[in-house]
Design a protein around this nucleic acid. Structure first.
Lengths: 222, 222
DNA sequence: TTACATATTTAGACTAGTCTAAATATTTGT
DNA sequence: ACAAATATTTAGACTAGTCTAAATATGTAA
């Protein structure tokens, strides 16, 4: 069965949205907002995807990926993240420059290509933003990281990923001097604005706004 | 101005066809055959490309690329050939396996990506089939190679490229043991069927049919 | 529970890219 | 130079993917 580039994008959107909240059902409006496509158009496409057995769709009730649909979505995510590793590790792009290009590359059709790219890159487990890369069977490393602002205690953490992927946020982290894998020591949490006084690696202390802290994923440092 | 993937393919086809013969004008039917798209459809597209000033089109008289159209076509060819080098040199694909994938990759839009890929690959001048790669300004190495069967004399040559790019032909050359850069010594030319007795590098002599000889590009070895 | 607000779907229309069939233009062979 | 063959264009239709406007369904608050 042929799955068009557009269909792949809808499947990926549904996959992503279904992991943002506890709800397993994704709504028409969520997809509409996420893809910047009018809800009426989304409804049309949902009917087509249901026709193809890629989703389970009940009018007015939202939508869930079928096994086949999930498999397709995960493959697209795998390709996206592998290409991002390629762009950063091999072509020296910055982590805030690769999203758009990977959005195009993720639709290249060739299983052999993905497999060889994966090998060429050393079978990476995470992309440049710390997001896990599904393996060839669609299995994902479960990351138990949490946003920094959910830690209400001082302590030593490792920066392992971001929630927000926008260019401006990534550039902000770069200007702060924060990179994936850096250690983040929380020295103070200010109650009035929930800002964080932190030390990155061995550098001078600085402040993270709550907005920054809420978009940074950390694990407790062992 | 946005140029669609489909439009890029038409421009590339016109570019390729205009270099196959002396005629600088390309006909509707040539494009139709080359792309396996009905002539009526091609006419429609030619009107649209003319509207966008990418070609000069006179109904019934054929078509020529404008400067802008030629520039676009050459960029697509550059991307195609660079990606082929990537697939063969970095991902270890065989030369007969890369065409289809490169047909997809050639449409990825990012000038920065092409430039970095070029650098990563060591600014190659030729693709895995010996076809010259246009530089960033669209300038091509002029190759003065000729098909082997246009040499009517014995002598020592270097195999530098192919005319035919089909998978079966490329696989045939591989099974013969002929690779780009090999020396080809013509020991005999048989008049009755225009077959060639040749020695590849220092190996045993073998025969090339005229069909093979006509699709192999060689230069005289210095 | 009813009315309002919100979410979703339906209906109808548009564009890009394709097709087939028919009409027209060009080229070629006698 | 004319008729036949060939090449090209026009006309009308189809699909995928999008839109806007209108209709309908669902959820919520008094």
């Amino acid at each position: 069965m042929i799955i068009s580039l557009t269909e792949e994008n809808y499947l990926k959107a549904i996959y992503t949205l279904s992991h943002l909240s506890e709800e397993s059902e994704v709504t028409t409006n969520q997809i509409s907002d996420h893809l910047s496509i009018k809800a009426a158009t989304v409804t049309d496409m949902l009917k087509r995807l249901a026709e193809k057995k890629l989703i389970n769709y009940i009018p007015y009730q939202g939508v869930k990926l079928s096994d086949k649909g999930k498999q397709t979505a995960i493959k697209v995510v795998r390709k996206h993240r592998l290409w991002e590793v390629f762009l950063v590790d091999k072509l020296n792009f910055k982590w805030d420059e690769v999203h758009e290009i990977a959005e195009q590359l993720e639709h290249i059709q060739s299983d052999e290509l993905i497999q060889r790219l994966d090998t060429f890159l050393g079978k990476p487990k995470f992309d440049p933003h710390g997001d896990p890369i599904p393996d060839a069977n669609g299995l994902l490393n479960v990351v138990k990281a949490i946003p920094l602002n959910q830690n209400k205690t001082k302590g030593l953490f490792v920066f392992v990923g971001v929630c927000e992927h926008s260019k401006t946020f990534l550039q902000h982290l770069t200007s702060i001097g924060l990179k994936i894998g850096d250690s983040v020591k929380v020295e103070e949490i200010n109650e009035f604005d929930n800002s964080y006084k932190v030390k990155i690696n061995k550098n001078n202390s600085q402040f993270f706004s709550n907005k920054v802290a809420s978009n940074i994923l950390v694990e407790i440092k062992k």
